[in-house]
Design a protein around this nucleic acid. Structure first.
Ligand SMILES: [Mn+2]
Ligand SMILES: [Mn+2]
Ligand SMILES: [Zn+2]
Ligand SMILES: [Zn+2]
Lengths: 146, 146
DNA sequence: CGCCGATTTAGATTTAATCTAAATCTATAT
DNA sequence: ATATAGATTTAGATTAAATCTAAATCGGCG
C-alpha cells in the first residue's frame, strides 16, 4: 500500500484537503478498478489488512473529498450512497437486477432542447436503468423509453 | 376527503393494485401540486386531519404503487427517497441549495451517441443539478458542465 | 520541544427503511 | 347475507445508513 503518491498529494493540496493516510486510503480504494463503492464497502476494503480508518472517518473522508471535487456521490439503486472517484465526466448505467453501477462514456445533450428557465445549471448527468450484460443473459437489442 | 375517484379506481384496477383508501391517500398527496415527497412527508400529510395510514403502510403503498408504475422513485439529494406520481415522462432538476426537485420537460437523447454495449436499457433520465430560481437570486445565464 | 487547530476514533444517537405477527379488510363463493 | 381465504394494515421492534459527540491523536510551526 505504501505512502501517498506525489500525484495524489498534489491533488489533495490543490484542493485544499490535508492529505492524511485515511483519506488517501479511501480515495485509493475508489480509484482502483473504478468501483462505485458504498461507505461500508470502503470501510471493509480499507481495513482488510490492518486497521486504517474508523467508520466515522470513512464518512468524514468521503465528505471532504466530495467537497473538494475529488470524489462524487453517484445515483444508485439501494439505500446506501455510492461514491465515484470523479476524474473525467461520464454518465451512469444502473442495473435494476444486481444494483451495479457502470460508467457510460460522456456525451453532450442536444443544445437548446432543455427548458431550464431561470435555473443555474452547474452539472448534469444521464442515468440509464436496465439490465446489465452480466445479469441480462444474452438477448439482442437495446431500446429505450421513459 | 371523499372517496376514491372513478378515474383513479380505474388506474388502480388496470394496474392490478387493490384500491384501498390508504393507497389512494398516498397517491392523492403525490398528485396534488406534483410534489416530490419523502415517505415521511407523505405520512404526515396523509394523517394531518385524522389517522389514515401507518408509517409501514405508507412504505408498503409506495412499493405497490411503484411496482404498478403509478409512482416512481426520483433521484434526490438527501438520504430519504423521494416519490413522484409518474404520469408523463420527464427529467429532473435538483437544487443543491434547498434540495427541491423540479420537473424538466421531456426530451430525447441524440440517437446513437451512447455506447451502451450489451446492456438492455429500459429507461433513462437526465438529472440536472444547480441552483433553483428561488434560491438563485437573479443572475443571468445557464451553463453546464461535469 | 510545546502548542493549537485539524483530524481521527469508538461508541452513542438519529434517521430511514424493513420486518413481524396479530388484527382487519375485501373479494368471492356459497 | 354469511363464510372463508387471502390481501392489506398496523404498532412496534429491528436493521441499516448516516451523523454526532467528546476525548485522543496528529502535524505543522514557533
Ligand atoms: Mn462512475
Ligand atoms: Mn417529477
Ligand atoms: Zn446486473
Ligand atoms: Zn433551491
Amino acid at each position: 500500500m505504501s505512502s501517498i503518491s506525489t500525484e495524489l498529494r498534489q491533488a489533495f493540496l490543490a484542493a485544499d484537503v490535508r492529505p492524511t493516510v485515511q483519506r488517501y486510503a479511501v480515495l485509493h480504494h475508489l480509484l482502483r478498478d473504478g468501483v462505485h463503492a458504498t461507505a461500508e464497502e470502503i470501510f471493509r476494503a480499507v481495513n482488510r489488512q490492518d486497521p486504517r480508518a474508523s467508520r466515522a472517518t470513512v464518512y468524514n473522508s468521503l465528505k471532504s473529498l466530495t467537497r473538494a471535487g475529488l470524489v462524487r456521490e453517484v445515483i444508485s439503486e439501494g439505500k446506501a450512497a455510492r461514491y465515484d472517484a470523479s476524474l473525467r465526466p461520464h454518465h451512469h448505467f444502473v442495473c435494476e437486477r444486481c444494483g451495479q453501477v457502470e460508467d457510460i462514456a460522456w456525451f453532450e445533450l442536444p443544445a437548446g432542447k432543455q427548458a431550464l428557465g431561470a435555473r443555474r445549471v452547474r452539472s448534469f448527468e444521464v442515468v440509464f436503468r436496465g439490465v446489465c450484460e452480466k445479469c441480462g443473459g444474452s438477448q439482442p437489442r437495446t431500446g429505450e423509453t421513459t
